[in-house]
Simulated assay, not measured.
Amino acid sequence: MIELRPHQLTAHTRWLCAAEPGPAALAEHVLTTGNGHGWADRAVQPRTIALDCAGHVLLRGDPGALDPAGLAPLAHRCIEAPGRFLPVLGASFDRVVPWERMVYVQRERATAPPPPRGVTIRQLTSADAPALVRLSPDSAWIHASWGGPSRLGRSGHAWGAFHQGALLAVACTYFRGGTYEDIAVVTAPGRRRRQLALGCVVALSRDISARGRTASWTCSRHNRASRLLAWTAGFRLVREYVHYATGSPAVRVARMPA
């Protein structure tokens, strides 16, 4: 596959932008924010296109147009693709692990309890980038889809719970579509079970509604805590799907001699 330039990406990926909740919002997010990469089997009239953002990939088209070596750029990703792509994925990587996922859409308006004393829930700004970095060593994924903490902070799409300047929890739009905004949330270790994440999610969801969009929530079937939080925040299950976690390329691409 070849990487598409921004103008090529805009021309060739409109058919990926389905107004559906969940991972479909990734396509519009890449197009509108410029954060991510597009790949195709060819630049003109491509038969297969892949969009990659924050380690998540949408793969669509004709799997017959692909060869295993060409999928090397999609190693170590989570790929959402129709089942017809499984043979070529299996031949392209040393492992392909199915991962059951659940998509929720906010159906009921939720109310969060008052935050604990001294905690303020507010919208993030670019000045909050250092607080995002300090949230926890494993939380960098929360701003990956925006290209870093500064870009997430100034996006206007994140709400956080603060105490004495420290960020304790944050909820943000992870993939922004025109109809749905798929959200994500993370809480600092040791700060869980205080309903801080719930307060952030409720505030973010109201913000999304004010923009004329609907909040959606995607998580692993086995992430009980995430599923419970979604339900408490008024989200209801609408569908299930499987994406595939890929390993290293199984086929090495031959290098041209110097």
Rank of each mutant, 00 (worst) to 15 (best):
P189C: 13
G190N: 02
R101H: 01
R134V: 00
P21G: 05
G36K: 00
A225W: 06
G165Y: 07
R191N: 12
G38N: 00
A197R: 04
L74I: 05
G38T: 02
A24H: 12
A19P: 11
A158W: 00
R227P: 01
P249L: 07
R47Y: 05
E20I: 04
A72R: 13
W217F: 15
G90F: 13
A197S: 12
L51V: 05
L58M: 12
T125L: 00
A91L: 15
D138S: 06
D67M: 12
R117L: 13
C17G: 04
F162P: 01
W39F: 15
Q164L: 10
Q123C: 06
A112M: 01
C53G: 08
A69S: 11
G61C: 12
L16G: 00
H157W: 11
P68T: 09
V238R: 11
P130H: 03
Y174H: 13
H76N: 14
G165W: 08
L58N: 09
L58T: 08
L58E: 10
M1I: 03
R151S: 12
R213L: 05
R191K: 14
G90D: 10
Y241C: 06
E20P: 06
R117G: 11
A112D: 04
A27E: 06
F93N: 11
V96D: 02
R42G: 10
S139D: 15
L26Y: 04
A230R: 00
H7V: 05
P149E: 03
I2L: 14
L167N: 02
L237F: 04
E20N: 14
A171I: 04
M102Q: 15
V202S: 11
A69V: 07
L86I: 08
A140Y: 11
M256T: 10
G61P: 08
T32F: 09
R221C: 07
S145W: 01
T13Y: 08
A215C: 01
F235G: 03
A54R: 00
L198G: 09
T125K: 05
G177I: 03
P46G: 02
A25G: 03
L26S: 02
R206S: 08
W15M: 13
A27N: 02
T48I: 00
P87C: 06
A184Y: 04
R236S: 07
A140R: 11
H12P: 04
A166E: 15
A18G: 11
L59F: 06
T214L: 15
L89E: 05
D138C: 03
T173E: 14
G38A: 03
L228H: 12
A65D: 08
L168W: 06
A131M: 03
W15R: 15
R236I: 03
S226K: 00
T10E: 11
A166V: 05
D67Q: 10
P98L: 09
E28C: 11
L31N: 00
V185Y: 08
H222N: 14
R42A: 14
A69E: 14
E100C: 12
P73D: 12
T173Q: 09
I121F: 02
R95N: 08
Q164C: 14
A110T: 03
P73T: 07
W231F: 12
A245N: 12
A203V: 03
R151W: 01
A65T: 06
T32K: 10
A50F: 09
L89C: 02
S145Q: 05
L51P: 10
I121M: 00
A245P: 01
A171G: 07
A91Y: 07
L167A: 03
L86F: 05
S92R: 06
L229R: 01
V186P: 07
L59V: 05
R42K: 15
D94R: 12
